[in-house]
Structures are given as structure tokens and as C-alpha cells.
Simulated scan of single mutants.
Amino acid sequence: MNGKRILVIDDEDDIREVAQLSLEMVGGWQVLTASSGPEGIEVASEQKPDAILLDVMMPELDGPSTFKKLQDNPETAKIPVILLTAKVLSADRQRFAELGVTAIVAKPFDPMNLATQVAELLGWNF
């Protein structure tokens, strides 16, 4: 399982830190982080992670807009994206699913189960 690289894009420092620790310690993955949509797009283009965890609610460029820009770039279009969101109403989930994201993880997430949840959603052996 080692060798996988995941990019976490979230404007909240504590969410990024908890996700990074969880994915590194439990999943054994290398974690890249970005604190905004534009920064995340740049990191994704340069580093080509195996997957991206993307916050929905961010200032400047929100998650859906960031996802669209990732999809429009041939270098990042094939990277699976999992949205992190506190919006878990069925209408919100349907709207996010229609974007073409791989999956949705509800916030707050359980740090001890995040790596397992991500692996299952991406079809990775864990």
C-alpha cells in the first residue's frame, strides 16, 4: 500500500493536519497538502498525486470550481477526487455526484477510519 500519494486540499489547518496524520500513520501514504483551490491545482499539476481529498467550502475557489479546473487540465483530469463536506443532505450529495467526483466523505470524519474509508472508495487494497 505504501507508495500512494494523496493531496489534501482544505482551507482549515486543523482538518489538513488531522487528515495528513491519519493518512500517513494509518494508511502509510505520502500526503501532500494545499490550503486553497489554486494552490491545490498547482500541487496536483506538479506532483500528480494518486488521489485528491478536496474540501467543498473554501474561500476564493470552492471545491466544485477547483474540481472543474482539475478536470479541464489533461495533466490532472484522471486523478480521482473525493470531496470532503459537511453538506450531507441528499440534494447536496446528488449535486456533487453529478459533478463526476469519485466519492464523498462527510465531515467531521473519523481520523482512525479515514485511510480505510479512502482505500475502499478508491478500490485500493489496504
Score class of each variant (00 low, 15 high):
residue 103 A to E: 12
residue 40 G to A: 08
residue 62 D to C: 02
residue 115 A to S: 10
residue 122 L to I: 04
residue 53 L to M: 08
residue 54 L to E: 04
residue 30 Q to T: 14
residue 114 L to E: 01
residue 125 N to V: 12
residue 61 L to P: 07
residue 12 E to T: 15
residue 116 T to S: 13
residue 95 R to A: 15
residue 90 S to M: 12
residue 30 Q to K: 10
residue 74 P to D: 09
residue 94 Q to M: 12
residue 7 L to V: 04
residue 30 Q to E: 15
residue 67 F to T: 03
residue 3 G to L: 06
residue 100 G to L: 06
residue 111 P to T: 04
residue 92 D to C: 00
residue 121 L to M: 14
residue 106 A to V: 06
residue 1 M to K: 11
residue 72 D to V: 02
residue 6 I to Q: 05
residue 38 P to C: 05
residue 52 I to L: 01
residue 72 D to L: 10
residue 26 V to R: 15
residue 44 A to C: 09
residue 27 G to T: 09
residue 31 V to D: 03
residue 41 I to F: 01
residue 56 V to C: 12
residue 65 S to K: 15
residue 48 K to R: 13
residue 57 M to K: 14
residue 19 A to T: 04
residue 115 A to E: 00
residue 87 K to W: 09
residue 51 A to E: 02
residue 110 D to W: 04
residue 83 L to S: 00
residue 81 V to E: 01
residue 2 N to I: 12
residue 12 E to N: 13
residue 38 P to D: 06
residue 3 G to Y: 02
residue 68 K to M: 13
residue 23 L to I: 09
residue 26 V to I: 15
residue 51 A to R: 00
residue 3 G to F: 03
residue 59 P to E: 05
residue 106 A to H: 10
residue 8 V to T: 13
residue 34 A to K: 03
residue 123 G to P: 01
residue 109 F to G: 08
residue 75 E to D: 11
residue 40 G to L: 04
residue 120 E to C: 04
residue 33 T to K: 14
residue 21 L to Q: 13
residue 14 D to N: 14
residue 113 N to T: 11
residue 64 P to K: 05
residue 83 L to M: 15
residue 63 G to Y: 00
residue 32 L to W: 08
residue 29 W to L: 09
residue 23 L to S: 08
residue 66 T to A: 03
